[in-house]
Design a protein around this nucleic acid. Sequence first.
DNA 1: ACCTGAACACCGTTCAAGT
DNA 2: ACCTGAACACCGTTCAAGT
Lengths: 203, 203
Amino acid sequence: MQDAPSRPYHHGDLRRAVIETALDMLRDEKGWQFTLREVARRAGVSHAAPYKHFPDKAALLAELAMIGFDRLRESLSAAKPTAPKSLRDELTKVARAYVAFGTDNPALYRLMYSAEEGQAVGIHLDERALAVFDVLLEILRRGQDAGSIRKRPIEGQAAAGWGLIHGMTMLAIDGLLVSEKVGSAPLDAALSTLVEGLGNPAT
Amino acid sequence: MQDAPSRPYHHGDLRRAVIETALDMLRDEKGWQFTLREVARRAGVSHAAPYKHFPDKAALLAELAMIGFDRLRESLSAAKPTAPKSLRDELTKVARAYVAFGTDNPALYRLMYSAEEGQAVGIHLDERALAVFDVLLEILRRGQDAGSIRKRPIEGQAAAGWGLIHGMTMLAIDGLLVSEKVGSAPLDAALSTLVEGLGNPAT
DNA sequence: ACCTGAACACCGTTCAAGT
DNA sequence: ACCTGAACACCGTTCAAGT
């Protein structure tokens, strides 16, 4: 955040500084392929210093991903209307907030889902990601109770919702479907389809 | 494919060999972060040789991504039933083939969608990816004509379909939702929701 | 025309040594 | 307790030189 005066880190909170610097770089760069040495450079420490706080780069990436999921959950909670006019209203607002989080933080979002198998990050997504999943589950459960949502296995409905929203977010980050030229019409149309698939036709 | 005899590449088709070797490595490894030097090593040439056929690593990645989209389109065409029993049948089979392609080729699939902004690959997804998109459009168009699909803007419906299937595929690759323990039930349930959202309730 | 070897400017990671 | 500097084994990329 603030420009550190040129005196070297005597004893400051390097752990936090490394995380903040990395988050800044995630904001600037488009990919999450930043280098640990560059983080150390910007933080004003030697390239070996971060190893006193993180066992390796993957551990830092995992920490960043966790922070990302926390922020995403906060964004979704903030976007959820306290007195929703309708199921459609509620789902649409949450879904838009989700996609907006992704397009606002493309590198961080990509990092969050590059975790687990195959990529650098080694966190188990299950824990944090399911917290996001739970936001969906809660809405759907309430909708089923109120009768505005079809009585179907709720996990499947939530899977459809998460899958669709995650997919739209990824495509939007890639500049596909949702872009400046196209606008958010495809997203809204996709949400309509989802809501029609979830919604109870009897109402 | 075949073990090259130990004599060095006199004049063989190194370009193809590099691509084949890279595809092999994509099959073995889980991420697409293979190194160009390792490709050269396995192909039995010096680490500088590939530069005679590709300007840089990104160019090779772009080529691989294009091959991936071609193969995906072939998989989808092959999976599309010639005489579908119903819209649901057709959509389900294509969608399952799509997800299966992703889980069978996780590294390649990730690479395909790591393109464009932010990541290493520099291809414009629009061209090839839209060929996949077109498979969906064709099914939906036919469904709307036959009356089995709601008359809604077809781009929005295709966006919903692509987004959901892409999202489910990504989550499946990450071991979320669709995994060995859980099975493909969430995928099928999500497809049901999609089909209910797309399908004409009048039929 | 196609490939090699050495070289350059980087990485991630380790470790003895400094304060 | 926390950080540095040098070192190791790698990268991607370039380029003169080889066949």
